[in-house]
Amino acid sequence: MAEFLSLHDAVARHVEDGATLAMEGFTHLIPFAAGHEIIRQGRRELTLIRMTPDLIFDQMIGAGCARRLIFSWGGNPGVGSLHRLRDAVEHGYPQPLEIFEHSHAAMACAFEAGAAGLPLAVLRGYVGSDLPKVNSQIKFIECPFTGERLAAVPAVRPDVGIVHAQKADRAGNVLVEGIIGVQKEVVLAARHSIVTVEAVVDDLEAGPNACVIPGWAIDAIAVAEQGAYPSYAHGYYPRDNAFYKAWDAIARDRESFAAWLEEHVYHAGGAA
């Protein structure tokens, strides 16, 4: 049953050093507030999992939280590079980062397989690509029925899954609306899950086929208003494209990144 906790307590309880941690939200509903809380609590040696690392993992990698990254598209959407990610991969700063690089299709399948309790995902993928040569987690198997050669990747079964959503009701049931990405899959694939929400309401007002994650499938719920900012929450606030553009200059330079982190994360004090 979902337990309502402060974001500080939810992270302190469930995220340990060395954990494998999936934090999802496909451009939409990215759990920034939770990421900042993890930075403030000084978690280290994490294996970070996200299809699109985005600014949130750029910040966590730059802050020294990560040892390993599993991803499928590592850019600043519509802008360019993730400079903290690049600095870690290209120069080992602030520490070396081991990467396991996939395609979106494979990662989406891997999350789905994790939610389904399977050890692997099978897809018609990676034909002719060099990615299997550099990622030991991509293999090929033969279909036992047709003989077709298919790609296989391990299911994603993280220690902790964190997503952001619009709202929860008082029993901890969560409604996700708009671009739903792999939000449900992450919660179901993870050993422990934290969902941050914009608001807690009496009635979700969800239609019969809405994307609702039952409270009994979630470990912790924490209210984090504007918790996906600078990404967006459909129905609550838009994406701050200007911040995504400004990030390029902030993150390009180690000192300006450190100053930003100091002011906007360490001294932001975990308002949520």
Partner: peptide, 23 residues
């Protein structure tokens, strides 16, 4: 600006999960 802008969702016939999209 990004692949997941709200504009794409608001003007779509429907929006499905990413695994459904690819699979």
């Amino acid at each position: 600006l990004s692949i997941g802008d709200g504009e794409l969702c608001e003007t779509a016939l429907t929006t499905v999960s990413v695994p459904e999209m690819f699979r």
